[in-house]
């Protein structure tokens, strides 16, 4: 028996919104420690890895590990039936071929349940090597979203260049060029407004705008985003979920032909 209850059901709705652009289907791996998911987009350019720890749920029971393969478009249709203040419970029997979502209003006066068919997905779990990144940038997630949106008007790719002074995002296209520079700025009133750079050595990497824009669907999940970069390895874009876990995106760089 698997059962996970989240009073803050809106969080689950936001998590789904953050991945459904990139992934049509994925397997939610449910274990005693929590729920995890790892999947690549259909072009195998990016990878999503998320973790929702069991202690972040209000009630969590997982007698044995279950893999819940879901069509995320269909899951999103069902999640749209939950109000933002609903309590959401996910339930599945061991070896079940369906999953049940229960939505309760805070006053318990309306309870809805939706049963969805599960899929058998042939998913390969990739090993992600531990990496000491050359540059780690922490910045407001809304700012990152804005920069990705703005520069995707200019070109298909963004060059992210990081030095200890700051981080620069650049795009070039038929109409011209655009550059956005952010200086390191830890002395702000609010912690979430800070731009903090930890640099071992400067890096400059090129990434496809399309994927960066998809990653920013996670913006409502966290006030800050963390970008981890090293030469010739995938960029990591991480949104931390308070007291719960994380949503991480990995994006393979573009390289000179």
């Amino acid at each position: 028996m698997f059962e996970a209850r989240l009073v803050q059901g809106a969080l689950l709705k936001k998590v789904l919104e953050s991945i459904k652009d990139l992934l049509n289907e994925a397997t939610w791996e449910c274990a005693a420690t929590g729920i995890s998911l790892q999947a690549m987009d259909s072009s195998h350019v990016s990878l999503v890895a998320l973790n929702l720890r069991s202690d972040g749920f209000d009630k969590y029971r997982c007698d044995r590990n279950v893999s819940l393969g879901m069509n995320l478009t269909n899951m999103a249709k069902i999640m749209k039936c939950a109000s933002n203040d609903d309590v959401i419970t996910i339930k599945a029997q061991d070896d079940a071929d369906t999953v049940t979502f229960v939505f309760e209003t805070p006053n318990q006066e309306k309870i809805s349940d939706y049963e969805m068919k599960l899929m058998n997905l042939d998913t390969e779990h990739l090993g992600i090597p531990d990496t000491d990144y050359s540059c780690i940038v922490k910045m407001p997630s809304v700012e990152f979203q804005r920069i990705c949106r703005d520069l995707s008007q200019i070109g298909d790719s963004v060059v992210i260049s990081c030095t200890k002074e700051g981080v620069k995002f650049s795009a070039a296209g038929d109409l011209g060029t655009g550059n956005v520079k952010l200086a390191q700025n830890a002395n702000v009133d609010k912690e979430e407004e800070a731009v903090v750079i930890e640099m071992q050595e400067p890096v400059s990497l090129t990434f496809a705008c399309r994927y960066l824009n998809s990653f920013t669907k996670a913006t409502p999940l966290a006030p800050q985003v963390q970008l981890s970069m090293s030469s010739d390895v995938p960029l990591v874009v991480e949104y931390k979920l308070e007291d719960m876990g994380y949503v991480r995106y990995y994006l393979a760089p573009k390289i000179e032909d």
Binding site: V45, L126, G127, P234, L251, P253, I255, E256
Partner: peptide, 13 residues
């Protein structure tokens, strides 16, 4: 520029 894939960095065990 050429787009690399994730599988050229991360391998299935």
């Amino acid at each position: 520029m050429a787009q690399k894939t994730i599988t050229s960095f991360f391998k299935a065990p």
